[in-house]
Amino acid sequence: MRKSVKRFSARIPLRLFESQPDERRKDPVMTRESDTSPFPYPLRWRIMDGLESALDAVWPRSMSRYSGWALVAPALLLVGILVLGLANIAESSLHTLDRSTFLPSEDYTLANYQTVADSATYWRVMWRSLLGAALTVVFTLLLALPYSYVMVRTPSAAIRKALLVALFLPFFIGQVVRAYGILIVLGTSGAVNDVLGFVGIGPFRLLFNFPAVVFGLVQYMLPFAVLMLAPALTAIPREIETAATSLGANWIRTFWHVVIPMARPGLVGAGLVVGTLSLTDFAMPAMLGGGSQDFIANAIYDQFFRTADQGLGAALALLLVALGSILVGIAIALFGAGTLGMGGKR
């Protein structure tokens, strides 16, 4: 018990420790009991004591210098599994499919990469993926910035809550269901064409083309972008905008010269998240593209699951990883890791 008291006194906050004599004075029962029996610690303290003892047994104090690594270990394990998977995929990409046995060939070759390089289809699909991701980033940020700004700056709690609910609702609906909803709304017999029909125009084919895919992606990515932008906008002191206004800047100039530059970490972060997620998206091109607007993920799926050519699928997957990594690398090189709020300049 003495050992326990010693450890506890060493670790509990000073405020708690100092309040103890007062508590004992106020409680005559405690004082009386303490004369005849060991000090009656509250149950919570005992539980904490037990937990500390258990922690000491599992992770002794002598190991405290490694505590940081222990906390990072699960994340490192996850990354390690990912790297292991990538190594496996890289190995697969070096084997072609033997169509007489449907097994990968024994020989190592770059033939799959050559196939991709020689294929006009894959170049087209890659270009479409990049263009789709870029357009999605632009449109999403254009919509997310005012949305976040109003959400953060509005004095009305009701409006803020309404905007938050509108933001989070789509999160509870999966991507596929949302895409299906778009199919219904934008279909030839859908709500939009019905409305157009009232004014005597249409119906139009609004689906199964590239704009429909980008529309679906923007709709899907908007909540991600708003959630990343809102903290960046909240971090901008309102007084700075007031100061700009008092110096004669109208709202547009204030927004352009003060808010946007100060929101850059959020804009870059949101752009990166939206860009990488869009680049690797599968469902929207598959469902809204009508089969002719494939992104790279769709081409990978085809190779893995439609033609059973895992080597070619693996090569495409690695190229997608490389493409995404290069884009993120360029963004960080241009804006610096510090822009993303990571502390350092680069």
Binding site: R99, A120, T121, G291, S292, D302, R306, T307, D309
Partner: peptide, 17 residues
Amino acid sequence: VQNESDWFARFKEIMQG
């Protein structure tokens, strides 16, 4: 079985254009 992958690829090539 021997040619399906090529046919799929060719079809995609045309349709993805």
